[in-house]
């Protein structure tokens, strides 16, 4: 399993990186953690003539809260998210997500930016970012622009990121009090892509009513799927078992799975329903102050 030949570029500034991408055109690929790209190159499913390694760019590796947002630098490794006390304590849904991506060695290299920019609906962060209502910041020849998560994923391995742009930051609105989220992944074995996975976030008011909900589904459609009807069914209502069950059913209806080695369409829909309920129960418990 040997990759094809390529020219290797390692810019040290974002401007330089973007200029390289502009000049190299379609024959270039951005190398971030490389944990999806390099295997594809070894199978010669990807044969870029140029690799632009962005790991030399300074200042793209951070996890911090500022101005009402949690911002995560695109080069932040999954392992850092997995370890981060801020993430564990305030954004356990992101910890849930990073913790179940591939395996420890892959998590040491794989980046959150790469996980999103790859545009693979089987990846785990996309659904979580959908549930969290995130934005991604991309940098191109004309500077930065921000793309809402619902506008970012266009299809399998296709995103709104242009060939001459680099994803630099993920921005997540700091959730109000009494919010909670959870990501539950069901996989054939540890580290596999999900049969299906569900990211759920809820915000409760003082009476326990749900005032805000986000539900994102992994690997059951051409992009991460937002289960909109399920979200709407929850908003304005208490998170009773019945209401959660209804949301599970609606999420299952919203999913668009295709039968494959991981399971039939029918089975995946059933899994989405079960996982949605479990994720909502866990999100609710966390919103109520539980773990």
């Amino acid at each position: 399993m040997i990759p094809g030949t390529f020219e290797y570029h390692k810019p040290s500034t974002l401007d330089e990186a973007v200029a390289l991408l502009a000049s190299l055109g379609d024959d270039a690929k951005v190398l971030s953690g490389g944990q999806s790209l390099i295997p594809m190159m070894k199978f010669r499913l990807a044969e870029p003539a140029n690799l632009v390694d962005i790991n030399g760019l300074e200042g793209l590796d951070y996890i911090r809260e500022a101005d009402g947002y949690l911002t995560i630098g695109a080069l932040t490794r999954e392992a850092e998210l997995d370890r981060s006390d801020l993430i564990k304590s305030k954004y356990p849904i992101i910890h849930d997500t990073a913790h179940v991506i591939a395996d420890p060695q892959v998590r040491n290299l794989a980046t959150i930016g790469g996980n999103l920019a790859h545009g693979d609906p089987a990846n785990d962060h996309p659904a979580t970012m959908v549930a969290l209502g995130a934005e991604v910041v991309v940098f191109g020849p004309n500077g930065s622009r921000t793309i809402g998560i619902d506008d970012f994923f266009l299809g399998p391995l296709a995103t709104a990121l242009k060939a001459n742009e680099i994803l630099t930051e993920i921005r997540i609105p700091v959730p109000p009090a009494n919010s909670g989220g959870a990501y539950i992944k069901f996989e054939r074995k540890v580290g596999d892509f999900a049969i299906a996975a569900v990211a759920a976030t809820v915000t409760l008011d003082g009476s326990g009513k749900c005032v805000k909900a986000g539900i994102g589904l992994t690997n059951v459609g051409p992009t991460p799927v937002r289960a909109k009807a399920a979200e709407e069914a929850l908003i304005g209502n208490p998170l009773t078992d019945d209401n959660i069950a209804t949301a599970g059913r609606l999420a299952s209806e919203a999913s668009q799975p295709v039968g494959d080695q991981r399971g039939s369409e029918e089975y995946k829909r059933a899994v989405v329903e079960v996982l949605t309920k479990r994720a909502l129960h866990k999100a609710k418990a966390r919103a109520e102050g539980g773990k």
């Binding site: 290797y8 490389g34 070894k42 690799l51 390694d53 060695q105 892959v106 040491n108 290299l109």
Partner: peptide, 13 residues
Amino acid sequence: GQAVKSCTVFTVQ
């Protein structure tokens, strides 16, 4: 200091 799979890293990296 980090465990990695050396079949999925280019030497130049």
